[in-house]
Design a protein around this nucleic acid. Structure first.
Lengths: 332, 332
DNA sequence: TTGAAAGCGCTAACAG
DNA sequence: CTGTTAGCGCTTTCAA
């Protein structure tokens, strides 16, 4: 049997309310009594029951973190940011992988609400926020991360995707590239859309155009980059540069390019987005756009926890936009 | 106010015990009553309080997962394995990063016990299991993963490190290498020790020896591999091949080697351990030893949950050993 | 098939 | 400074 506050009370010869007070460092307990109680608790190997406490305090000191896939190198850093900040504030986190599946995401949200998390951080698997989502988000503090449209009515932290797309495009053009190509993730993803928008902006404002077939979509996986690029290379007109909307895609593209015996960046320049750890590796050295991943997680946690502190305040549409930054390496 | 079982009972004109029964699909509730109750619950947007339930059932359907660092590419896959299996069994997981810090790990264990997790999966930050650890492990089901000594008295799942080290060494020798070098992580890590043991075995049984200075230790980070290798390259006798006890170390070593203008594998062959995703990338293509990461996580979860199911059974020293496998790519 | 009541371990008034 | 007493929301006997 695990020992409870009652067992301690009995042994100490006091009421269990006193034990509670003593153990929680509350005011108004005799020094000596407190000392004794703490000692007894320790010798009895007492571990306070956070479940019971949560029930009465209606606070679990726990938040839920839902991301698409921890196996995708973008997310561990984000998660680490969330965890580090939460830990500092004494909050634990439930980790959930939605596996890019909206239904699974919804099921997790429901489950986490049942477990009475104090708040939720979500990197949505899809950008579109439905009425159902909104209903949920009104039940408890939520902050959204990454790939979320602005004006979504929920607190969120994102990188400036438009700007990121712009600087990527600009860089390619400054390097003298004329026939640019955009390699996107899912077409309905907001981050993809926004990065495309910025990219297009750079292209147009330089008096260039994107030729036929130079805008492709797939998903955010390496395989997708590989196969799209391969297809592209088999077509009649070959681009002289690629902006991939994330690094995994870019790395996949690189693979297809090199397989074809083409030189990077001489024949084709490639630039990615996110600056995942792998991008820096020797032999990869991908030019990319830094996405402040850790910071994003940290900020999301900070925003969420401040909302949780501000009891009752329903989260307003606060939106923090982080700055992207060009990281020039060898591929562009 | 969130709606409770009582609110539903009131609206349905039944006792709340009946509501509980109806909602939990228990036997002996009138068909029609049940239907009504379920309907009311749904319209009232009822979400069962898992905290309250946990208090009475003494089961939270939650497990804790403590790993050193989710940012280390080895762990996301493990975590994913744990999560996928747990999710299937309707368990949630608390993710905790010990940051390779034994104290932080201990604090997390304590916290998770307070949160009344039903069990714990730990990839220990250090291999040595202390009496304190043992005390904790006797409080609730625990399974240890990766880098755990055998006969540790706790259920565990590991890869056969000795064998892995052996096949790595054997491969190098089969390729004609004579002056081998071992690049280890922390010297007191069991996985490092075991991999070394297997490696040494291969070396010795081929009638070779490891020359002076050809056994180095650092930590499991890329930087460490880089700096140790750099140092090695500046020494008088240069090895013709390296077995690094993990891929990160190997990649760091690769970096130092290439920086020096040396060719891999011609001048120096390199073999790693773990087969992290990056190892397969074009431009890296590291020869390595596959470590069944996902499977390890999955198995750990399976073992833990079966123990949790087998209520009361204190976990015995079951030890599952997974098979390593040589993955030959370009660096060795 | 249903209700009444006890209790999970704890916190928080309210009295004393 | 300390004890008594209500709950928190739920499950689970025990009776009816």
């Amino acid at each position: 049997m695990t020992t409870t506050i009652k067992d301690i009370a009995e042994k100490a010869g006091v009421s269990y309310a006193t034990v509670s007070r003593a153990l929680n460092g509350k005011y108004g307990v005799n020094q000596e009594t407190r000392r004794q109680i703490i000692e007894i608790a320790s010798t009895m190997n007492y571990s306070p029951n956070a479940i019971a406490r949560g029930l009465v305090k209606k606070q679990t000191h726990t938040i839920g973190l839902i991301i698409p896939d921890i196996t995708n190198p973008f997310f561990p850093e984000v998660a680490r940011g969330v965890e580090d900040f939460s830990e500092k504030m004494n909050f634990s986190i439930f980790l959930c992988n939605s596996n890019w599946d909206k239904n699974k995401e919804s099921r997790y949200v429901k489950l986490l609400i049942e477990k009475r998390v104090d708040g939720l951080i979500i990197a949505p698997s899809r950008s579109i926020i439905t009425g159902d989502d909104r209903l949920v988000y009104s039940r408890l503090p939520v902050v959204l991360m990454s790939g979320v449209q602005s004006g979504c009515g929920t607190a969120s932290v994102v990188v400036d995707n438009v700007k990121g797309g712009y600087i990527a495009g600009k860089h390619l053009i400054d390097k003298g590239r004329k026939n640019l190509c955009f390699l996107g993730g899912a077409e309905d993803s907001f981050s993809v859309k926004e990065r495309y928008e910025g990219f297009l902006d750079a292209v147009k404002s330089s008096g260039l155009i994107l030729s036929e077939g130079m805008v492709r979509f797939g998903d955010y996986r390496q395989k997708s980059g590989y196969s799209i690029m391969k297809e592209l290379l088999e077509g009649s007109s070959r681009p002289d540069s690629i902006f991939a909307s994330n690094d995994l895609l870019a790395i996949g593209a690189l693979e297809a390019i090199q397989e074809k015996g083409l030189k990077v960046p001489d024949d084709i320049a490639v630039i990615g987005f996110d600056n995942i750890a792998t991008a820096a590796f020797q032999g990869v050295e991908l030019t990319t756009v830094e996405h402040p991943k850790y910071r994003m997680g940290e900020l999301a946690a900070e925003m969420l926890l401040s909302r949780i502190g501000a009891q009752g305040e329903v989260s307003k549409d606060e939106r923090v936009v982080l700055e992207p930054e060009l990281i020039v390496r060898k591929t562009a």
